[in-house]
């Protein structure tokens, strides 16, 4: 019950009683809360109504809870697992009161994500030399936009950033990345449409080394994970990067759209096989979709979420934080 109480204690404190650290948590949480308002209102609306209509824990309540989880795209397997754990906890602790039940739910989601590990959302940056981050994903999930936002964030953190326009296939993709580079105010390496993306990476790495760049962000063309040739192309891009910079890419981030359903699992599997994915960027969390598939991906494949985006502005990107995420989903319950 640790998490529930610790968050609750922070949020129930008076603002000026908070330590600096706690203040930061609150600020960040408020941002999540705002961005996920749509998500939360639809999910919380349901949860609240659910708890109001029951005065004790019974099978109907479990069934409705299961429905809510499924509707959040968490995925059948993970939901069944989650439900089993919640049920056994309720039985063991002989839970009758609804407040206690709510905290069990939240703690179970939390532990499914954390899995008794310290989950590090910080990027693995190369302290002495160039860091290369490769972005992969299916079409239309928001890779290019995410790169723009992450570049902006890293630059604000004092890093020298460069972009590499590795999507040489989709019409307009190179221009799109160039526009983001202009907004951020960082260089962008491009080649003609149709060029070999691996060659773009090669050139970008040489330039980045020469210009003492800290972080190189590499865009790639969206591709469905079933396209064998395109996945091979991605393997080649990955290979070239690791050949040119030892230990690179330091992060390979899979971008997943929050509206994605169970196919997200197939995406995570296939892209990991091709490029050893180290983290996820969950995009478009400002709609009504809950992006629950990332919980399933974490649960089944162990890949953590690094960033979430929830808006079209350059600042609409946050480091992922599971406590905040759950808070965003359930914050009405803390009131």
């Amino acid at each position: 019950m640790g998490l529930f109480n610790s968050i609750k204690s922070i949020f129930s404190k008076n603002k000026n009683q908070l330590t600096n650290e706690e203040q930061l948590i609150v600020e960040k949480a408020e941002k999540y809360k705002k961005g996920m308002e749509k998500t939360r209102s639809s999910m919380m609306g349901k949860l609240k109504a659910l708890f109001e209509s029951y005065d004790r824990v019974n099978d109907d309540l479990f069934n409705e809870l299961e429905e809510i989880f499924i509707m959040a795209d968490i995925g059948v397997n993970t939901v069944l697992e989650l439900m089993d754990e919640i049920k056994s906890d309720v039985r063991i602790r002989n839970v009758a009161n609804m407040k206690e039940f709510q905290s069990i739910i939240i703690d179970k989601i939390f532990s499914i994500y954390v899995k008794d590990e310290i989950v590090d959302t910080n990027l693995n940056l190369n302290e002495n030399g160039l860091t290369v981050i490769l972005f992969v994903g299916v079409n239309g999930v928001g890779k290019t936009t995410s790169i723009g936002k992450i570049a902006y964030k890293l630059q604000n953190e004092g890093k020298k950033v460069m972009l590499a326009a590795g999507d040489t296939f989709r019409a307009g993709a190179i221009d799109q990345l160039k526009i983001w580079a202009d907004r951020v105010g960082c260089p962008c390496v491009t080649k003609a449409p149709g060029s070999d993306p691996a060659s773009v990476m090669y050139e970008a790495i040489q330039l980045a080394k020469a210009q003492n760049i800290d972080v190189l962000l590499c865009d790639t063309a969206g591709r469905l994970q079933t396209k064998v040739n395109l996945m091979k192309e991605l393997e080649k891009v990955h290979r070239v990067i690791s050949r040119e910079v030892p230990g690179a890419p330091h992060e390979t981030l899979l971008v997943i759209d929050a509206t994605t359903g169970q196919n997200g699992m197939n995406q995570a599997r296939a892209f990991t096989e091709a490029t050893n994915v180290t983290g996820i960027v969950l995009t478009k969390l400002d709609g009504t979709a809950k992006g629950g598939i990332v919980l399933a991906i974490r649960n089944e494949l162990g890949i953590p979420i690094k960033f979430v985006t929830m808006g079209e502005k350059i600042t609409d990107l946050e480091y992922f934080d599971i406590e905040q995420y759950i808070y965003g989903l359930f914050s009405d319950m803390f009131v």
């Binding site: 959040a72 509206t259 997200g264 709609g287 979709a289």
Partner: peptide
Amino acid sequence: VDAMTGQDAVNV
């Protein structure tokens, strides 16, 4: 509509 859309397809 993206064929990979999950439960949210209905809302959208």
